[in-house]
C-alpha cells in the first residue's frame, strides 16, 4: 500500500469516527479526483458540482462501511462518485420502479475480500483482457465504465443499430469475464 493510499485509508477511518477535521482533509485530498469522475460522466459543470456535494454527504454517511484493505480507498470513493453520477443519469430518464437507498448501496459496497484479492493481485489484467477484444469493443466497455455511456449512446457513437450494440457488448463481456478469471 503506497503512503498516500495509507493516508487516505486513515482519513476514511477517522471520518467513520466522526472526525470532522479528517473529513475535511479527505475532501481536500480527493475532491479533484471525484470531481473528475462526476464531470466526465455528467458532462455538465453545474450538475457535476451538485453531484460532488451529494457524493461527499454519502462519504460521510457511509465511511463506517468502508472495509480497509479490501479495496483501494480511492476506488471506494470513485465507486461512490461514479454510482451517484450514474444514478443522476438514470434519473433523467423516466423511472418506473422505486427502491430504497439501502438496496442500491450494494453497488457502492466493497466487494467481498476474496474477490478483491483477485483484483489486487492482477492489477492491469483488465487492460490485457481488453486488449484481447477488438478495438472498438474494448472502447465501448471503457466508454460505459468511464463515461457512463448507455447502450443507446454507444450505438450512436459506433454507428450501429441498438440491438447490434447490445449483442456486441454482451458477447464482449462474456469473453472479458472468461479472460479475467483464467
Amino acid at each position: 500500500m503506497s503512503q498516500s493510499t495509507a493516508e487516505i485509508d486513515d482519513l476514511i477511518a477517522r471520518t467513520a469516527l466522526r472526525d470532522r477535521a479528517a473529513f475535511r482533509d479527505l475532501y481536500q485530498r480527493t475532491s479533484a479526483k471525484l470531481f473528475g469522475v462526476t464531470l466526465r460522466i455528467l458532462k455538465d459543470r453545474s450538475e457535476a458540482e451538485e453531484a460532488l456535494q451529494e457524493v461527499y454527504v454519502k462519504v460521510w454517511q457511509r465511511a463506517d462501511r468502508y472495509a480497509a484493505g479490501a479495496y483501494s480507498p480511492i476506488s471506494w470513493l470513485v465507486a461512490i462518485a461514479r454510482n451517484h453520477s450514474l444514478d443522476v443519469l438514470r434519473a433523467r430518464k423516466p423511472v418506473a420502479d422505486d427502491i430504497d437507498d439501502a438496496t442500491l448501496e450494494i453497488a457502492d459496497g466493497s466487494p467481498d475480500p476474496e474477490a478483491a484479492a483477485i483484483g489486487r493481485s492482477e492489477r492491469g489484467r483488465i487492460d490485457d483482457c481488453l486488449a484481447g477484444l477488438e478495438d472498438d469493443k474494448a472502447e465501448a466497455v471503457r466508454g460505459a465504465y468511464l463515461d457512463g455511456f448507455s447502450y443507446e449512446e454507444l450505438a450512436t457513437r459506433f454507428s450501429v443499430p441498438l440491438n447490434t450494440m447490445r449483442t456486441w457488448l454482451r458477447r464482449s463481456l462474456i469473453k472479458l469475464r472468461e479472460c479475467l478469471t483464467q
Binding site: S31, I118, R142, Y145
Partner: peptide
C-alpha cells in the same frame, strides 16, 4: 461475488479519471 469480481477489475481503470479541481 460476481459483482465483486467485476468491481475489482474495473476499478483498476479508475486511474483514467483525470483530476479536475473542485
Amino acid at each position: 461475488r460476481e459483482l465483486g469480481i467485476w468491481q475489482s477489475h474495473l476499478s483498476t481503470l479508475d486511474d483514467q479519471f483525470l483530476e479536475s479541481p473542485a
